[in-house]
Amino acid sequence: MGELREGGALYLRIIAARIRAQLQYRASFALETVGMFFVTFLDFVVILVIFANVPALAGWSRAEVALLYAISALCFAFTDLVVGQLDWLSEWVRNGTFDGMLVRPRGTLFQVISSDFQIRRVGKIVQGLLVLVYALVVLDIQWTPARALMLAAAIPVGTVIFISIWVLTISIVFWTVDGREAANAFTYGGSFLAQFPINLYDRWLRRFLGYIVPIAFVAYFPSLYILDKPDPLGLPSILQFAAPVVAVVTAIAAGLVWRVAVRHYQSAGG
């Protein structure tokens, strides 16, 4: 427990230093945050456009979809804020930056996660919050303590699910760059590297796992419960409470896969 608290304190210390550094450039920080807000807002505009033409989508009204969207968008925004730098991992594995993390006395995942913190990503959170407020104002929800709790828990639980899945899928870079990182493979040139469809693969997998499978647990089931809506798919209602279990299972799986993946690390050069 003390170990955990000490790690948490170190995380906050590193992040605070990063934020201080970013705030040195106030104007660019402000512009980027606003930009981030609008870019994500376009996602929601698409939903609004659809509903300008149809009154309901598969039995969901505009406001109901807004609730679903807001929960999922908030979870993803927090995920991106905390672990967005995982996008850099394949680069770090390729250029050897990851070496430096292995010679420090902390967990590698901890170091990857604490290596960056882009406050401009707060713009996405603001956008998600605004959509959530809109949904809650328009919808006529019969609030009970259980429903309020469901909404409050949905965000952190969904964030854990997203983070776990991201860690799980990104671990693949420890295998796919395997051939490349071997001693003299650099000489075979960029064309060879380009034939590895890592990004495609990655994104496809991430979409499938990240959006299709767990989105049900991140936003769909919690929304059904909060709205007291019968499940159009007729799935057992116990699934509406399964999200925390899914979160724990995916988190454990992510931790295990990461551990195995790091042992596969080949490091750059010879």
């Binding site: 990063r18 050897g96 930056t97 070496d99 010679v103």
Partner: peptide, 21 residues
């Protein structure tokens, strides 16, 4: 991690320090 506390490592061209701090 136990070993990391007892060794110091310097990789010539590679940056170990926080770039923007």
């Amino acid at each position: 991690t136990e070993l990391a506390r007892r060794i110091g490592v310097l990789f010539g061209q590679r940056v170990q320090l926080w770039w923007d701090l």
